[in-house]
Design a protein around this nucleic acid. Structure first.
Length: 210
DNA sequence: CCACGGATTGGCT
DNA sequence: GCCAATCCGTGGA
């Protein structure tokens, strides 16, 4: 898959409804420029956060220094630091002051995989299991793509970090469920992932292997 | 000012 | 399945 033949997603795309965009992000490619090369992967799992009605969202209690970017309108990257050691990357959506974003939870590596491996494991050769684990979680995606707090606020319309288009998936291939790792607003079904994709971070027990 | 706990991960039982 | 690692943003006092 050559990133250069795909079209970058327009600013307009990001200014729409957060839940709609979350579903449409599935199947598109997250791209990071790494020198002359690119790191890229198919987005296979996301979660929506909407501060207007969602207590789990960082923006639920209004603007702070940390969440400022989530209020700056669709088309930027919101990156935050958590658990003392991990970063999480989000696509900001909607209009100015909406406070809505989509967490990128998992990516299927497609391009620049060798660089991802080095970024994440600090070595060149990995096992099959480590390949599956390369980007199947929000902290892992940031590590593999070398995304950190310096990338907070990056415009996704620029050439550093961006998303390239692909046809929207059929609704039948999208699974929906409760979000992972939160304690508030736990019942909102705002996690979306590609059904059956092996790079999704985790499956409900009914779909898991024994 | 300070204590709490988190949109996680990886290692060990 | 359980839990430590590790740090800083946030909220209550």
């Amino acid at each position: 898959m050559k990133i250069s033949v795909h079209k970058k997603v327009s600013l307009k795309f990001y200014k729409r409804d957060v839940l709609l965009i979350a579903k449409e992000l599935l199947g598109k490619y997250l791209v990071r420029k790494a020198g002359k090369a690119f790191i890229a992967g198919k987005i296979v799992e996301v979660e929506a956060y909407d501060g207007t009605i969602d207590e789990a969202s960082h923006t639920y209690r209004g603007k702070t220094k940390r969440n400022q970017v989530m209020f700056e309108g669709g088309g930027k990257l919101y990156v935050y630091f958590t658990y003392g050691m991990h970063f999480c990357a989000n696509v900001v959506t909607g209009k100015m002051n909406d406070g809505k974003a989509i967490l990128i939870r998992a990516v299927e590596p497609t391009e620049g995989i060798q660089q991802m491996i080095i970024n994440r494991y600090g070595k060149e050769i990995i096992s099959e299991k480590e390949l599956i684990n390369l980007c199947n979680g929000p902290g892992k995606v940031c590590r593999a793509f070398n995304i950190n707090v310096n990338d907070n606020g990056t415009k996704l319309t620029g050439n550093d970090i961006f998303i390239v288009d692909s046809k929207n998936l059929k609704p039948a291939s999208i699974s929906t469920g409760k979000r992972i790792g939160i304690k508030k607003s736990v019942d909102l079904p705002w996690r979306y992932y590609i059904t059956g994709n092996k790079f999704v971070s985790r499956l409900p027990s009914s779909q898991r292997e024994k």
